[in-house]
Amino acid sequence: MFYSLTPAPPDPILGLTEAFKKDPNPNKINLGVGVYKDAQGRTPVLASVKRAEERLLAAEQTKNYLPIEGDPAFGDATQALLFGKDHGVVRDRRAVTVQAPGGTGALRVAADFIASTLEAKTVWLSDPTWPNHPNVFQAAKLKTATYPYFDKPTNGVDFDGMMAALHQIPVGDVVVLHGCCHNPTGVDLTPAQWEVVAEELARRNLLPLVDFAYQGFADGLQEDARGLHILARHCPDLLIASSYSKNFGLYNERVGALTLVAGSPAAAETALSHIKRVVRANYSNPPAHGAAIVATVLNDGELKRLWEDEVRQMRDRINTMRHLFVETLQEKGVTQDFSFIARQRGMFSFSGLTPEQVKALRERYSIYAVSSGRISVAGMTEENMDYLCSAIAAVLNSPS
């Protein structure tokens, strides 16, 4: 039985990390995996998180199971972060939230809910999108297709192509949208474009599923939720898969949430009963520790202010690296225009490097990036920037 199996292909992103770890070059740089790094190249534990953990450890009295939907305080805090406590969907109890093992877990719960309960035929993904998106939905036996999103000549959104595709999607299908910091391109919709998209989704009765993994990493915690609020104003039904891996640095705690917005409180509660059935058949109930950290921070004024400042510092460092990268490439004599990278947002950018150039960077300089040319700006530091840009300049100037 098992002896007849052949090895599965490695994950294109996590496989890069394994190769990176084995590389003996002291100057090696990992621009593949989406993990925040500070100026010293470390993934820190936030001070707000450590303080919350100290409180939790001192107060902990049980290791009992959480409810199927998770910690209620975590669910309330998640809705307040997404919409604000006074938003209509929260005030009118049209939103329900289940805790999930990371943003990926939230997406999988959404996929199983769609597959088992709704009549959607296809889940539509942006072209390009996070490489794991198709895997998650196809594992739930859902069909996936793509709509145009990235325009290579302008390094912006192919909005005309996107809208033409949305206009042709069959009624009732699911459209996955990136709330901010589009992965892998770093190119986001403007508020005006969100309005047009939301109107089209509502007009055609398409279900938006927002992958919201980077709240706070583009322009600010509230600013990054503008697209979400626009969708909620136009679309009676909405799914949001959110993650606390990046903005809380809780990567290995696997803390995420699936929030469902419906047209009425009764419809939301009915949908929740189906989501709970999906969760029960999958992991039964979620882990407690990471969600307790999030709830403790978001429900305490002092800790929340500290956390908001830490998110701002992470966002500012990433944006600083974007500008420094563009400037250093120019100093190295690179004539190819990389200025668009400074305009993009979040941890990722489409660099414009070809698969051959990415391979050369890896083989000659131990610089690891995804073959598509997607780079994680968070992997750049002031210390490695000169080496990185010198290597890119050398590869770009090499004969093809």
Rank of each mutant, 00 (worst) to 15 (best):
M1D: 07
M1L: 03
F2R: 15
S4C: 05
A8K: 14
D11S: 07
I13F: 00
L14G: 11
K22Y: 00
P26Q: 01
V35Q: 04
Y36R: 00
K63S: 10
G70Y: 03
G70E: 04
P72H: 03
F74I: 10
G75N: 05
T78F: 02
L82C: 11
G88N: 08
G88W: 12
R91H: 10
D92F: 05
R94Y: 08
A95T: 06
V98D: 14
G103E: 15
R108D: 15
S116K: 15
S116V: 00
L118G: 10
T122V: 09
T122D: 11
L125K: 06
P128L: 04
H133I: 06
P134K: 12
V136L: 09
F137S: 03
Q138T: 12
K141Y: 10
L142T: 02
D151G: 05
K152S: 03
A165P: 02
I169R: 00
I169H: 03
L177K: 09
L177D: 14
H178Y: 04
C180A: 09
N183M: 07
T185W: 06
L189P: 15
R203E: 08
R203C: 13
R204M: 08
N205M: 14
F212C: 09
F212H: 15
D224W: 05
A225M: 05
L228Y: 02
H229W: 04
I240V: 12
I240W: 14
S243V: 05
Y244F: 12
S245D: 15
K246L: 12
F248D: 06
G249M: 09
L250F: 13
A257C: 05
A257M: 09
L258E: 15
S264K: 01
A266P: 11
E269C: 05
I275L: 07
I275E: 02
V279T: 11
S284D: 08
P286Y: 02
A292F: 11
V297K: 14
E308W: 09
E308T: 12
R315F: 01
R317M: 08
I318Q: 00
N319P: 00
L324R: 12
K332M: 08
M347C: 03
M347V: 01
F348P: 01
G352L: 05
T354A: 02
P355E: 15
Y368Q: 02
M380K: 00
E382W: 01
D386Q: 13
L388E: 14
I392K: 07
I392D: 10
A394C: 00
